[in-house]
Simulated scan of single mutants.
Amino acid sequence: MKNIFYSLLLMVFSQQCYAQSSTADQQKLLDLYQNQKYAEAAQYLKNSYTDQTNDQKALNQIAYCFLMAGNNVEAEKYYSKAYQLQPQNLSVLFSLGNISTRRGNQQLAKKYYGEIVKIDSNNFNVYKLLANLYPSVKDSLRFVYLLKANQLNPNEADVAIDLAEVHGVSQEYEKAYHVLDVAIKADSENLVLQRAKLPLANQLKKYQEVITTGEILLKDGDDAAVIRDVAKAYYYTKKYDQAIKYFSRIEKLLMQNENTLYFTSLSYRYLKNYKMAAIYANKTIEEAISPNTASYYALLGLSYEENNQFKLAHAAYKKGLQFKATPTLYYRLAILYDTKLKQPKPALNYYKLYLGSKPNAEDDEAEIKFTKDRIAQLLLTD
């Protein structure tokens, strides 16, 4: 979106730099422009014209300088006045739409861009900008505007990538692939387009294309997403040694996930390396389980316990231990057996397990002291 807007600014600049004025020194303005002293240029122009001026070129010049100086409020003020004088001026409408977007007023931006569509229904830039005002890939209007922009300019990379993403979410992989393929034919060295196309080629079982393109892309540097696609392509073509090689590269980048570990385990299994298959099956399981699962069960158990649902609390604490033996779970079980279920022997066992799990001496000072005192009491009554 920025590229579009700055292109428009250059167009406005070329028009406005040479705007004739009886009061403003155009050479001085050019010097200020060339040195990017837009705030000074804006102030100079304001002083050269009265606030009541209806000179369209002057208003555009002042607004442009304020915009380039980052003063959106003043820029909007002057562009709005220019808009009142010429409501169908495309450069003014584009500028007002952009300012509205910058200031977070999406509805106003849609209004200005919508007016451009009414004036010029084949304006590629406005459809691209409108699409960006609907960020959700599931929004039907985003799809409509991207589709129109792509029809007007199928070679433009940004729109092609965004439209392919929308098609991909709808599982229309052939359409997504075709959109990117057209753009790539127009710019065969565009690595961003090629990266976007790679997972789609995998979905469409174009595995040799994935391998060939992916290995070229990886010469530009490691990219976990590209490595993953190449690894899967090798897996699906039953080249399991190569698949493992690429999945291992993902691990070295610390970018492995449940899916990549799963495919690594399967690859080892097909190679009849059952020892490594088991290792990666375990890694897959560990990756699939949240490190916070035990804490969640501790919270669930405590909720049950406080509601006097002791059997459910006991089950929740024990389930949590299956994921990770934490000091909190041992302590909660000890307290549950001791004070609620009135079973001193298992309570004593869990108090000991709690101390053995090395709770934080500073954070859990009170619990540690209580546990030691309670162990001493239980041993006396044993």
Rank of each mutant, 00 (worst) to 15 (best):
A131Q: 08
N307I: 09
Q106D: 08
Q84F: 01
V126L: 03
A294P: 09
T23A: 08
S170E: 15
I211M: 11
H167I: 00
L218E: 02
A131Y: 05
Y274L: 14
Y246D: 02
A24T: 12
A109H: 01
A347S: 13
I244P: 03
D55V: 03
E362G: 08
S248T: 11
M68F: 05
Y44V: 10
R195Y: 14
K175P: 04
L10W: 09
I99E: 02
Y112A: 00
E365V: 08
D364Q: 15
Q86G: 05
M255I: 10
F370C: 12
A224H: 09
L261C: 02
Q88R: 13
K118F: 07
L204E: 01
Q107H: 08
I227C: 11
Y351D: 01
S303M: 05
A58L: 04
A164I: 02
Y262T: 13
S14Y: 09
V210L: 00
R102V: 13
L353W: 08
D338L: 10
K345F: 13
A63N: 12
A201V: 05
V179E: 01
A224V: 14
F13R: 12
K342W: 06
S21V: 08
K272Y: 08
I184W: 06
K345I: 11
L93N: 00
Y134D: 02
K2R: 14
L85P: 14
Q88K: 13
G320E: 03
L300W: 04
V182E: 02
L152I: 07
A294L: 10
K138Y: 14
D223G: 04
R374Y: 09
K318P: 01
Q52N: 11
L45W: 04
Y177T: 05
Q171E: 15
D139K: 09
E287R: 00
V169S: 05
Q15F: 04
K319R: 05
A39G: 06
K37G: 07
G114P: 01
S48E: 09
Y297C: 12
V210A: 04
